[in-house]
Amino acid sequence: MSEITPDLVRHLASLARILVTDEEVDQLAGELAVIVDSVAMVNQAVSGDVVATSHPIPMVNVYREDVILPSLTQEQALSGAPESADGRFKVNAILDED
């Protein structure tokens, strides 16, 4: 029933930004197939007219007064960054140069 192929795992891993080796892909495909086959039973439990619950205790429109409260300083916000420069997070290029 499951359609968890190695190619699908490779695609999902790339969506999730996780580098995977061929060996990991094969292992994950096997494990995920078993898990997905098992959890797919949720389909049997529900019919179309059941409402979905996304949040167990319903709450709507949580507002607060629009006042300025203390927050992290720039230095604190950058304190855990692997690299920063000029008060900003420093990262590698987003696009390939070529």
Binding site: L32, V36, V39, A40, V42, V46, V50, A52, P56
Partner: peptide, 24 residues
Amino acid sequence: ILGTYALSSGYYDAYYGSAQKVRT
């Protein structure tokens, strides 16, 4: 990776959507 699968287009209703109905 399992979660990425459950949320991916085409599977969302069958998996995540049904699971939320089970919560109800």
